[in-house]
Design a protein around this nucleic acid. Structure first.
Lengths: 354, 354
DNA sequence: GTTAGCACTCTCAGTGCTTGAGTGCTAACC
DNA sequence: GGTTAGCACTCAAGCACTGAGAGTGCTAAC
């Protein structure tokens, strides 16, 4: 038994209908709504075949049929061929919305997820830069008050991380710059994630050099290093969580609660993309049981990467039911990730020109 | 008809029982669970009186009774007398949890709402500093790369706001400091919220002075001022939103959705505390219909202020059903707000000592 | 190979009945 | 006069039952 043209047409019709209505699709519905030129009885025969082939299941004997994950996979692969090369006509408009007011990374991400969930009507999220891989450019201390100093870690990607330090004793203002320079020298070129490892050796080196005369620095150092190594938190933004409450599949409070808990938990979201190997492709679609996480076995995940300097640093995407409007979501995720990529590579990666 | 001792005992018993079970309370239940020494029939008579006085209502003729907002108000006022002066034995423990790892404001707030919702099992939130009232201490530009500069706005409260600026042309490094000083001179002492108003006059003044020779500054200025005035966003953190899905009153998806949408919307949350006059008291309890917002007419809100320099800058609190565990929530909100106040006044307001 | 017809299945919404929790009222009690 | 037992009454909630409707699979005819 093979997937001939008519079977494909019927399968697509069933998937479309189910995506629209979330109701099991019967043969009569198909023959009425989609002009296939055959009677319900014929469609019934084909549907029976499709079920045997694993593309459809029947919730109960006398009901219509619903697509399986395998069917969605087929549908999406087919769709992808068409969308793959399509140009994005609204790129500039999207960019200006995303970059509205501020080109701060956080603001870019927040705007992106907002617009993504507005367009798709599903839940969207960004797993923001895992800065562990980022290389330190230099360190700058900025005095704030007598007993507080702002520590800026300027990364080579032009991202700036900040930590507020509390001092036990004031640092003379003439030493502030010297300390910044010393720290920069020691840390320049190291990855943020490696700080933990090289912490002790940096402290040792500074002890040996003339810097050990610098009391203020030596006092501050262990505390400062501690604060810096505690920076690797993953940032997750999400939006449109309530959108799923409009979907009939989440009429069940228990299911809704599970979903929301999962999405709201940064750690579970971050874990989705922990194994960097799996997520190399720019656009990744994971349908139902293809998800490794049990909690998402009824969901589909469409995510895209964003890169800086060609290096993958995070993912943006949409979570929805397996019955999602793949066509729209794929296009939207693709467009928005393209927009983000252009924005951050303009702003954080060298010669920006108006 | 007056609230004699027995009526009060019965009323409290009914409220307790309803807080625990969310089920209309009958006379038999009261006489069995709470030892009042009278028969159900007597309790029935008293309940009938309490209903007439507006403390109870009956959802339908043959059901038990549930407390009205008026009853909760009485209950809470009574409770407050006892809690008011109580000391908080866990203050130091709370402080260390809240200040875990970082004393960054954002991190303090995030930790606070997390622990607040964990303890209370309701939804908690912080409406973070409205910086409009904050006074600018000085301005500092920090070079990040050839075409990017980080603008730091250091406020007198030791809070630092940052904006990333993109340059059309590089600023010579010897001018960077001079620009910082000029800007600081002009803006020192002004409120962040007033920038919009004084923007033009600052630009004019700088034109008149020798600074107008400083091309880099004059190029940058309008863009910089625009970015600074766009900073007044309100920050809202929340946690434990899913907790409400465990409550029977939110078994209804529509109600749950309304609630979550409201809490997730920063603007609606911020609006709760817009009228500064209303919220002077350190601990504010707003029950059901006492809330001005229609969306919260079935909710109670328990919030506390946090202050810097004696000046109110934000609120932290809990939203839950009117049937909430007031005793626990009031104590917890009180403790946590005390902890926050101590932390931020140590860190952001002068002489910190270990 | 396609289709009309028919028997069959299963869900869903509506109906009526029963049960139980709770009330209000009355009359008796202390 | 306050308290209580007793009783009739009310209403929601759960349960069984029913009929309608949507859908299928099979068979026989086209």
């Amino acid at each position: 038994m093979s997937l001939d043209k008519r079977k494909i047409a019927i399968l697509k019709a069933i998937i479309s209908s189910y995506i629209d209505n979330a109701e099991a699709v019967g043969s009569r519905t198909i023959s009425k709504k989609y002009e296939l030129g055959v009677s319900p009885a014929t469609i019934r025969n084909e549907m029976s075949d499709l079920e045997e082939m694993g593309f459809l299941i029947q919730p109960h004997t006398s009901s219509g049929r619903i697509p399986t994950d395998k069917a969605y996979r087929y549908y999406v692969d087919d769709l992808w061929k068409k969308v793959k090369k399509s140009k994005n006509p609204n790129l500039d408009k999207l960019k200006s919305i995303i970059e509205d007011k501020s080109s701060e990374l956080d603001s870019i991400f927040r705007n992106s997820v907002r617009i993504l969930s507005q367009i798709t009507k599903y839940t969207s999220f960004v797993v923001a830069p895992q800065l562990k891989q980022s290389v330190i450019q230099r360190i700058q201390l900025v005095p704030v008050s007598e007993y507080t100093v702002l520590l800026l870690i300027i990364l080579q990607s032009n991202i700036v991380k900040q930590v507020m330090l509390r001092l036990n004793s004031p640092i003379p203002s003439d030493q502030m710059e010297r300390i910044s320079v010393s720290l920069s020298e020691k840390m320049h070129g190291h990855k943020l994630g490696d700080l933990e490892k090289i912490k002790d050796s940096i402290i040792r080196e500074l002890y040996i050099t003339r810097e050990s005369n610098n009391d203020a620095l030596m006092d501050l150092l262990p505390y400062l290093m501690d604060q810096m190594t505690g920076l690797e938190e993953v940032n997750v933004f999400s939006d449109g969580i309530t959108n799923i409450l409009d979907l009939p599949e989440y009429n069940d409070i228990v299911k809704a609660r599970e979903f929301i808990s999962f999405v709201e938990d940064k750690h579970s979201m971050a874990r989705l993309f922990q194994n960097a190997e799996d997520i190399n492709s720019d656009l990744e679609i994971s349908i139902g049981s293809e998800n490794k996480t049990v909690e998402l076995k009824d969901c589909s995940l469409i995510t895209a990467t964003y890169k800086l300097n060609g290096k993958l640093i995070g993912r943006i995407g949409v979570i929805g039911p397996t019955r999602m409007d793949y066509s729209n979501v794929i296009k939207t995720v693709k467009s928005i990730s393209e927009a983000i990529n252009e924005i951050i590579n303009q702003n954080y990666n060298g010669e920006y020109k108006e």
